[in-house]
Computed example of a mutant assay.
Amino acid sequence: MSQHPSKPGGVFNKKNKWLLWVGVILMILAMVAYVATLDESEVPGRGGEPVPEEAP
């Protein structure tokens, strides 16, 4: 079997380096969206239906 010489750079070489940057930008946007919407989540025990003290 012939072995191919390994190329430096691995998967993200110069040819598809844009793919790495697209992934980085999408990850940053996802983190910003998570932090921006964190205060809009419902907090248990505030509002909504009252929780009964004892189950029947």
Rank of each mutant, 00 (worst) to 15 (best):
K15R: 15
M1A: 15
P5S: 15
G47T: 02
G10A: 10
L19I: 06
G45V: 04
K15W: 13
W18I: 00
W21E: 02
F12V: 03
G9D: 12
G47C: 01
E40C: 08
D39A: 10
Q3G: 14
M1V: 14
A33H: 03
P52E: 10
E53D: 11
R46S: 09
L29F: 04
V24C: 06
D39M: 06
L38R: 12
M1G: 15
L26H: 04
A30W: 06
G10T: 09
M31S: 01
A30E: 03
P8L: 12
E49S: 07
K14F: 13
W21G: 05
D39R: 10
T37R: 04
T37E: 03
V22K: 00
P5V: 14
R46L: 11
S41D: 09
K7N: 13
L26Y: 01
N13M: 08
F12I: 00
V32N: 01
I25K: 00
L38H: 08
Y34H: 06
K17S: 12
K14Y: 12
E42W: 00
N13A: 12
F12M: 01
L26T: 07
A33S: 04
A30P: 02
V43N: 05
P50Q: 05
E53I: 07
V11T: 05
E53H: 03
N13Q: 12
G10K: 07
L29C: 07
G45N: 05
I28W: 02
L26V: 11
K15E: 15
E49P: 06
G9C: 13
L26P: 00
E53A: 10
E42K: 03
V51I: 12
L20M: 07
W21F: 12
F12N: 00
Y34A: 11
G23N: 02
P5L: 14
N16K: 04
W18M: 00
G48Y: 02
A30Q: 03
K7D: 13
E40M: 13
A55I: 10
P50Y: 05
P5K: 14
P52M: 05
W18K: 03
E54T: 10
S6Q: 13
G45K: 00
S2E: 15
V22M: 08
A55V: 12
V51A: 08
P56E: 15
H4S: 13
A36V: 12
I28H: 00
Q3R: 15
R46P: 04
R46N: 08
E54I: 05
P44A: 01
E53T: 09
G10C: 09
P52A: 11
H4E: 15
G47N: 06
W21T: 03
N16E: 05
M27V: 11
P52V: 08
S41E: 11
V11P: 02
A33Y: 02
M1F: 15
P56R: 07
L19D: 00
K7T: 14
A36H: 06
M31Y: 03
A55S: 10
V22H: 04
W18P: 02
H4L: 14
I28S: 00
